[in-house]
């Protein structure tokens, strides 16, 4: 049986791991390569790097981090943040990323989703969606790291990118991100019941039960978390053992 994946996410700023609460108040939590090695040893199913310095000129530090991680961790690595073009994707793959996540650039130029999926294969292209509740069962997409609101409906957008060939959706609830109140399972279930591709739940996990709810209530195929792992509240193993006890298929 296909396992539900547990994915630690490392927000990387100029080559260092940080994690913000609601995207501000960044706290340093260490060297990304060392963190990645720990997660790899602990049984993470994948790793995710989100480069939050993407708009600056410091991309080279990220490439070095990706390269070193790929040399040390033999599990899939997704890298996102500031990916604007096919050329950006090529470079990240070249340095050892297995999947590349695209956020703002896909919203601004939806053709990029089709072109990237065709060129690198659907399974390489993850579309990252930052969504915020704007009404009853209604969510809008935000771009530029959550700073810019659009009028685009999040569920419809997910459906559109899936049809264009995206291999996976990384769905972040901006309302929940950093709050430890649990995933926005209403948003999640709306998306997971609409699209045929896998969905990674992100934003808000604070307890073991939240992981379970993301699978059972939200229908997520994979669960992403950052601070809960970085600051040692729970290990990846704790999460997996808990889910296994609740009869969720995980890789132990």
């Amino acid at each position: 049986m296909l396992k539900k994946r547990i994915i630690p996410c490392l927000d990387v700023d100029q080559g260092r791991v940080v994690k913000g609460v609601n995207f501000v108040d960044l706290v340093d939590a260490g060297d990304p390569v060392e963190q990645a090695k720990i997660y790899n040893a602990e049984g993470a199913d994948e790793l995710c790097f989100l480069d939050i310095t993407a708009s600056s000129d410091d991309r080279e530090t990220l490439f070095e981090v990706v390269k070193k991680t790929a040399e040390n961790c033999f599990i899939p690595l997704t890298v996102g943040g500031g990916v604007r073009s096919l050329d950006d994707i090529s470079r990240l793959l070249h340095y050892g990323a297995d999947k590349v996540s695209i956020n703002t650039a896909a919203v601004e130029n939806i053709d990029l989703v089709a072109k990237a999926s065709k060129k690198y294969g659907s399974s390489t292209i993850v579309i990252a969606v930052d969504a915020k509740k704007t009404g009853d069962h209604k969510w809008s997409i935000f771009t530029h790291g959550g700073r810019k609101q659009t009028e685009i409906d999040a569920v419809k957008y997910c459906e559109e990118v899936a049809n264009l060939g995206a291999g996976e959706i990384l769905l972040t609830s901006m309302d929940r991100d950093g709050t430890k109140m649990g995933f926005d399972n209403d948003l999640l279930s709306n998306v997971t019941s609409t699209v045929d591709i896998p969905v990674i739940a992100s934003g808000g996990v604070g307890t073991l039960e939240h992981f379970l709810d993301g699978v059972i209530v939200g229908g997520a195929n994979a669960l992403l978390a950052a601070s809960i792992f970085h600051f040692g509240e729970y290990s990846i193993n704790d999460v997996k053992r808990y889910l296994a006890e609740q009869n969720i298929a995980v890789r132990i």
């Binding site: 296909l2 396992k3 994946r5 399974s123 291999g167 045929d196 591709i197 896998p198 969905v199 195929n221």
Partner: peptide
């Protein structure tokens, strides 16, 4: 085949 709840691509760890 997209059967049951199986998403396509088949992505992740399987025995």
């Amino acid at each position: 085949d997209a059967l049951d709840d199986c998403k396509i691509p088949h992505m992740g760890w399987n025995e």
